[in-house]
Computed example of a mutant assay.
Amino acid sequence: MLIEQRLEKIKAIIEEERSATMAYLAEKLKVSKDTIRRDLIKLEHQNILRRTHGGAVSIDREATIFNYQQRSKKHNQIKEQIAYKTAEWIKNNCSIIFDSSTTVEAVIRKLHNKTIYAITNSLTHAILLAQFEKTEVTVLPGALHKEQLFLYGSETVKKIEHYHTDYTILGVFAISADGLFIHTEAEGLVKRQMIEQGDTVIAVADHTKLNTTGLFKVCDLNAIDVLITDHVPQQEFLTCLQNNNVNIITLD
């Protein structure tokens, strides 16, 4: 098979399946992984795909960045259902670190009857939590993101280190076999420390976040304990989650 034909076949596979591993492509095209690796480099230079550890994803499968208002309006019904499912996991009389995502905001609204000690870097979440009679709230320090109203930076990360909580609940910007990703390092470092401090780490994400990637890696899959989403992931990714001891909870 000529290289041009092989590249066209790889492009077609990525376009149809949105992502693929090098092992899968090598088997499909009957060539070595080294050959596939060189082909993926060529296609990445053509802006056809983005290489990941062990494979590639199509460009349009990279997670899209929205501002807070846009994100809060997307997939509202799904967020509500995920929020109900997440709230079922939370025991009464517990401590929780909440990140600044809009799906986490939906979860918070379902916890108003529980006694919790809440820690968050989101001013929006803090105002909501302050309305709950049984909730004590700590707002983390740091630099303020003026559009999305969350706090970040070295001061934020350092303060999180002082806490040891029952749960960390975080929204997922992008998740794949390579781990959890986000579009900025500053927010990613905050999320990474939040994960370190929670006994049980619960990640919440609708299906559009699955098998996507981002600029900054937050953690490996084995750093989270539970993934709550609306649809069962594709088999390859599902197996990867299971191999990393992630408990997958779906609405299906």
Rank of each mutant, 00 (worst) to 15 (best):
K209W: 04
A126S: 12
L49W: 03
C94T: 15
I160Q: 06
C219K: 02
A130Y: 13
Q70I: 08
I65T: 14
L25R: 02
L123D: 01
S72R: 15
S101L: 07
V204T: 12
D166M: 01
A83R: 01
Y84L: 13
I169E: 15
I48Q: 13
R192I: 13
F66S: 12
F181Q: 00
M194W: 11
N243V: 02
C219I: 06
F237S: 00
N121T: 00
C94L: 10
G55C: 01
N67Q: 01
A87K: 02
V190F: 09
H162M: 14
D252F: 06
H112K: 14
S72V: 11
I248D: 03
R109P: 03
V218W: 09
V190R: 05
D206K: 03
Y24R: 13
I82D: 00
N93G: 06
Q77C: 08
F173Q: 11
Q242M: 13
T21K: 05
L221H: 01
Q242H: 14
V139S: 03
G153T: 07
C240M: 14
A186N: 12
E8A: 10
D199A: 04
Q242W: 07
S176R: 02
T165R: 01
H162F: 14
K209D: 06
T208E: 14
R37W: 07
N211L: 05
N211D: 10
T229Y: 00
I96R: 03
M1H: 05
T213C: 09
T120D: 04
T52A: 01
Q77S: 14
L189K: 15
T52W: 00
K217P: 09
E8W: 02
F98V: 04
E185N: 11
L180Y: 07
C219V: 07
V190L: 11
K110C: 15
V232F: 05
I96W: 02
V218F: 09
Q131Y: 10
V246Y: 01
A56F: 10
N245H: 09
R38M: 10
F173N: 12
I13V: 13
I96E: 04
N222S: 09
D220E: 15
Y163I: 08
H112I: 11
K134M: 08
R38C: 07
T115N: 12
